[in-house]
Simulated scan of single mutants.
Amino acid sequence: MNPDREIALPPVALWRINAMRFLFLLMALVMGSVVWTQLLFESTDWPVMRGLAKSMLAALALLSLLGVRYPMQMLPLMLYEIAWKTVWLTLIALRAWLTGHWTADIESLFVDCIGIVIAFFIVPWRYVWACYFARPMEPLRRVG
Rank of each mutant, 00 (worst) to 15 (best):
M78P: 03
K54H: 13
A13R: 06
A59T: 12
A93K: 02
Q73G: 14
R21Q: 11
R5Q: 14
S64K: 06
L23G: 05
L25I: 15
L77Y: 05
M72T: 07
V123H: 05
I116R: 02
M56F: 14
T103M: 02
P47A: 12
R95Y: 08
L79G: 05
P11T: 03
S43I: 03
M72Q: 05
R16H: 04
M56N: 10
R5H: 10
A83R: 01
D112Y: 10
A119D: 04
A19F: 11
W15C: 09
M31E: 13
E6S: 14
P124S: 03
A104Y: 05
A53E: 03
L14F: 08
L60S: 11
M72Y: 04
L77N: 06
Y80C: 12
L62D: 04
S55G: 08
W84C: 09
V30A: 15
Y80F: 15
T99C: 06
L63P: 06
F41M: 02
G67M: 07
F24I: 12
G51T: 11
T90I: 12
L109N: 12
M74Y: 07
P11H: 02
P124K: 00
I82F: 12
V117I: 15
W97A: 11
N18Y: 15
M31R: 12
E6H: 12
L52C: 08
L9R: 01
L40I: 13
W84D: 08
W97R: 03
A53Q: 03
V87N: 00
A104V: 13
D112L: 11
L89N: 06
T99F: 11
E42G: 07
L9W: 01
I122W: 01
S33M: 07
A19D: 07
I17N: 06
R95I: 11
E107I: 05
Y80T: 13
M74D: 05
A58G: 15
W97H: 09
V117G: 05
F110D: 00
G100M: 03
V87F: 07
A59W: 03
S55L: 03
T103P: 00
M72W: 04
S43R: 01
S55E: 01
E42Q: 11
M49N: 11
V35A: 03
N18E: 15
R95F: 08
G32K: 01
F121V: 11
V34M: 14
L77M: 09
L94A: 14
R21C: 07
R16W: 02
I92M: 07
P124L: 04
H101W: 06
T37K: 00
A83N: 04
W88A: 12
P3C: 01
K85G: 09
M56Q: 13
M27A: 14
L65Q: 01
A104W: 04
G51N: 10
Y70T: 10
W36R: 00
F22G: 14
L39R: 05
M74V: 10
T90Q: 09
W36F: 04
D45F: 10
S55R: 01
W46V: 08
M49Y: 14
L57S: 15
V30L: 15
G67I: 09
F110Y: 10
Y80D: 09
W15K: 06
P76Q: 00
L65Y: 04
T37D: 06
L26T: 15
L109A: 09
P3Y: 02
L98H: 07
Q73C: 09
A28R: 02
L29N: 08
T99A: 10
V87E: 00
L62Y: 05
T37G: 04
V48M: 11
